[in-house]
Design a protein around this nucleic acid. Structure first.
Length: 460
RNA sequence: GUGGUUGUAGCUCAGUUGGUUAGAGCGCUGGUUUGUGGUACCAGAUGUCGUGGGUUCGAGUCCCAUCUUCCACCCCA
């Protein structure tokens, strides 16, 4: 009995047009990565569980796909774990491998493992799929690609500056104008938490603050209060909610709010440096915006935090993110390695380009000319011409089956039409005699008799 | 993981308080046209109503489970 075929939730098949469009985005990102001096690496699709587990918080652990051990794995499990029926405790005993959840942690592992072969600062890019056991939504899948570029081994703020330029370069190359690169600094968030006396609740505080544009000021305050932040502290946040103006004036306001916080002041200085550099270098199509509510969930960020939003009017959320992490490799035993990196969300960029109709016509790498097959002798002659065209790099093909009746001609023309092949060549009895080719333009319907050389020059 | 939503022809969707043989548009196949596709006209075929149970004389329609889709949380690209 034939079963209805299907693919797992949150995964997708891609048809050739979609692949072409995705490759266009990949190629654009990749070429900019290379222009900026990044080198490609690849890591396995699955890692040892202990490499991944515990690196993304409890929520992250839940979203990691675990791979069941091979063999009779259950019989080896101690009854203590088995009879408890506690999945979290049992999992490590039946699964010691897991699918890659992001590219940053495997990168950190790579750096530590290969530290003696690497020249620091190490600039790498990586474009590979990652997997999350999340519940899918629009623009969110269980299998998707990340496109990451990171530098490790330098604390220079010029790296942050270059990453902002890189974002701008990629989105400009994709002709996606009007993106906003939002920037914040974890040190500023720490400073604010310090000022309001909530250093110990930094994560709760930032998670709540991050929701400001989504749920509004009052709800944010409620959530903070609910998490145990004092009313007095929340009152001190008031200037933050009314923060406005350009980059410079926001900085000035922050200076007065954070004047008593050493770490806060440090964060402000970093932002000022970056903003000054970017102002002087100028961006092509993106704009840089300070957003003190930008938090991002990952707890390993320590300095700058980036997030890119699509142009106004496209409701898709962020299309990229990143930041600086001072001690990413520390968890694998390599201390004092500061890194900073950014990521591009391919699937979301795809949706945005689709919505704004920004894919160039040329992404469809279609066959340029189809030769109609009239019979064995004609086909042989056609195939010689097809070979000559292919040698010139022209995408050409011969319809494989012969004409056996007039209907077949229609079928072959129809095939060319459906595949949007722009030219058709007819080589029948007449053309064989006169040693010529009838070239037909499918869009205009015009046709003419040409020689092989003319055919090549017209299709080139 | 929580709450909701969706599934009928290849595609987009109708389908009444449960009632005979489940419809439309587009697409598809054939013909008008045996060396000419895309336009026009004519004809034709669409299907285990997501899957599995249940209620009923009778289920596309009601109930339960499950899968899938999309959405809001959570989190995130």
């Amino acid at each position: 009995m034939a079963q209805k075929p299907s693919i797992p939730k949150g995964t997708r098949d891609f048809n050739s047009e979609t692949v072409a469009k995705r490759n266009y985005i990949f190629d654009t990102i990749k070429s900019q990565f290379q222009v900026y001096g990044f080198q490609p690496i690849e890591t396995p699709s699955f890692e040892n569980s202990e490499t991944l587990m515990g690196k993304y918080g409890d929520e992250g652990d839940r979203l990691i796909f675990k791979i069941l051990n091979s063999g009779d794995y259950l019989s080896k499990v101690d009854n203590r774990f088995y009879l408890d029926k506690d999945s979290n405790k049992l999992t490590p005993h039946i699964s010691e491998k897991a699918l890659r959840y992001d590219l940053t942690v495997p990168f950190a592992r790579y750096v530590v493992q290969h530290q003696n072969e690497i020249e620091f600062p190490f600039k790498r890019y990586q474009i590979q799929p990652v997997w999350r056991a999340d519940r899918p939504q629009k623009g969110r899948f269980r299998e998707f690609y990340q496109c990451d570029a990171d530098v490790i081994g330098s604390t220079s703020l010029f790296q942050e500056v270059e990453f902002i330029q890189l974002y701008d370069a990629v989105f400009s190359a994709l002709n996606l104008k009007g993106t906003t690169i939002k920037i914040n600094n974890r040190k500023i968030l720490s400073g604010i938490a310090e000022v309001i006396g909530a250093q110990d609740k930094l994560i709760d505080f930032t998670v709540a603050l991050d929701k400001l544009d989504k749920i509004g000021e009052e709800k944010v305050k409620e959530e903070m209060f609910g998490k145990g932040i004092s009313q007095e502290g929340i009152d001190k946040l008031q200037p933050l909610f009314t923060l406005s103006g350009d980059f410079g004036s926001q900085i000035e306001s922050l200076k007065s709010i954070l004047s008593i916080s050493e770490v806060g002041i440090k964060g402000i200085e970093e932002l000022e440096f970056i903003n000054k550099a970017i102002s002087s270098l100028e961006l092509k199509t993106a704009k840089l915006q300070l957003d003190v509510t930008l938090a991002r969930g990952l707890n390993y960020y320590t300095g700058a935090i980036f997030e890119v939003s699509a142009p106004e009017g496209v409701n898709i959320g962020s299309i990229g993110g990143g930041g600086r992490y001072d001690d990413l490799t520390g968890i694998f035993g390599l201390k004092n390695m500061s890194g900073v990196g950014i990521s591009f969300g391919l699937d979301r960029i795809y949706l945005v380009l689709e919505e704004l109709n920004l894919f160039p016509e040329s992404v469809k790498e279609n066959t340029k000319v189809l030769f109609i097959n009239f019979g064995e002798e004609e086909a042989m002659s056609s195939l010689k011409a097809v070979t000559a065209l292919r040698n010139e790099g022209i995408k050409a093909e011969l319809y494989p089956d012969w004409i056996t009746s007039g209907k077949q001609m229609k079928k072959q023309m129809n095939y060319a039409n459906k595949r949007e092949i722009p030219f058709v060549v007819l080589v029948g009895e007449e053309e064989l005699k006169s040693n010529s080719f009838t070239l037909k333009n499918m869009a205009s319907g015009e046709q003419e008799a040409v020689s092989l050389n003319e055919l090549i020059s017209k299709l080139k």
